[in-house]
Design a protein around this nucleic acid. Structure first.
Lengths: 180, 180
DNA sequence: AGCGCCATGTAAGTGGTTACATGATTGT
DNA sequence: ACAATCATGTAACCACTTACATGGCGCT
């Protein structure tokens, strides 16, 4: 599944502009699927070329025309076919864990700094989840609740694990200090 | 951090061929950093061009020469500088969660199938972790233990969350069935 | 007879990121 | 005054994936 398909899915919730979709990628989808303008705008024009979305241009003063996209019947059909795929992936790419693999080569303070940075990033996600919960709309689909809960659970588990196990890496630092 | 840097890091553990590194990407690094031959072999030749690794060619009969790479002093210095970066990322890209966001558009059986497939994938990871623990070498660095524990914790948390909350999506199915 | 392992690599393609280009309006 | 928000898009670049190309050895 690529950015195009996710955009199409977002549009089942109602018409939206590229700018609107970007905000959704930053908030609710942010923790598991990111996309920038450089992916979103080309995605929307491709979807338009294929007839999967219609575009309504709303003139504005001082700003570029606001282009509001609406999913078409063909778009809906395409989306439903795409959602039939059972073998979905769930990939993690972590510089953090890769770095921690080589903690024994690093200065102890650097290891601590990397861990602290990761914990603040996790805190940001937790804050984001709180914000989403605060303006929760009852009409949001069950998947939204499932995915939000998933994010909260993972963030919590990560935070706990890192806090309780950072000593595994810090001990190495203690050894170095004792030896050196 | 890219594949080149991770390869370099792996080579601090001792000389290895591209084939050896691939196996490491599949086992211990598999759950947070993947790479195929198409990334590894070019990475090694780039590292060689930059003088970060030395290459020893060992002739073999019937197979291509085995090329064993060894990290150089410059390579070690480069790696240490790369590891000083505090702002490491930890990105998730999940077709699974994206699909679940649109569960209300799907046939109930398809939702179930996607979830079941995800649970079997998680089970594979758990099996992989068990295998790593079985041939655990005491000389492996503390980071390896930290990262393995991280993977086990996340896999467990995911499995539990999905099992306990899949009803959020199945309920929708029940509604449809009741209505339809 | 066929599969999996060992062992290397390239070439084309995919898909996404980053930087650039533009500029009014609204809030602090 | 200055930052953030609204609003679009392109072009160059980057990194990785997939498919291809080659082929012996050992096991069942």
């Amino acid at each position: 599944m690529d950015v195009k398909t996710v955009c199409l899915g977002m549009l089942t919730d109602g018409p939206a502009s590229g700018y609107d979709l970007k905000k959704e990628f930053e908030s609710s989808f942010g923790h598991f699927f990111s996309a920038g303008y450089g992916s979103i705008y080309p995605a929307l024009s491709t979807l338009s070329d294929k007839g999967y979305v219609d575009c309504e241009e709303i003139p504005q003063e001082g700003k570029p025309d606001r282009k509001v996209y609406r999913i078409t019947d063909e778009g809906r059909q395409f989306l439903l076919r795409a959602l039939e795929k059972r073998e979905t992936c769930h990939k993690v790419r972590s510089e953090f864990l890769a770095t921690m693999c080589f903690a024994h080569l690093m200065a102890p303070d650097d290891v601590e700094a990397v861990i602290d940075h990761r914990l603040t990033e996790i805190e940001k996600y937790k804050q984001l989840f709180r914000e989403i919960e605060q303006d929760w709309q009852p009409e949001w689909p069950p998947g939204a609740k499932f995915v939000l809960g998933f994010g909260k659970t993972m963030a919590g588990a990560m935070e706990t694990y890192i806090t309780e196990n950072r000593h595994l890496l810090a001990d190495e630092a203690a050894v170095k200090t004792a030896v050196g």
